[in-house]
């Protein structure tokens, strides 16, 4: 557990350091995630150590949104003025993205002969 947490934090730290040093547009944790995917593919030992703890953190992922979500109370002015526009932007873009994504997948799967599972 401690080894896994230390490794996850070290991957994050490595990502943050790389993002800062190279002035990359990606957030540090995303770089850490990409590096960890490569690490998991290469090392069965890393897989055995990190996987249970990572799964544990992800099982409670939604809890982690709460503190930022409560930030709502500090944004009430914005929500009062721009709330309807933002809500409409979210609804329209979600509908469009799901439709475009699903239809693109279906079309390309048909063109490349990739059968459904």
């Amino acid at each position: 557990m401690i080894a896994a947490l230390a490794l996850i934090l070290l991957f994050q730290l490595g990502g943050e350091a790389t993002a800062q040093a190279l002035a990359l547009p990606l957030p540090g944790p995303v770089l850490g995630m990409i590096a960890l995917v490569a690490g998991l593919a290469l090392s069965p030992r890393l897989r055995a150590t990190v996987t249970p703890v990572a799964d544990g953190i992800l099982a409670h992922l939604s809890l982690l949104f709460v503190p930022a979500g409560v930030g709502l109370v500090a944004q009430l002015d914005v929500i009062r003025s721009a709330g309807p526009a933002l809500l409409l932007a979210l609804v329209v873009s979600s509908l469009a993205a799901i439709a475009v994504g699903a239809l693109t997948f279906t079309l390309v799967a048909r063109l490349t002969g990739s059968a459904p599972e």
Partner: peptide, 13 residues
């Protein structure tokens, strides 16, 4: 949230 982002590597892999 940071460690959780790194942890997303597991389902992705």
């Amino acid at each position: 949230l940071g460690p959780a982002t790194v942890s997303l590597a597991v389902p992705l892999w």
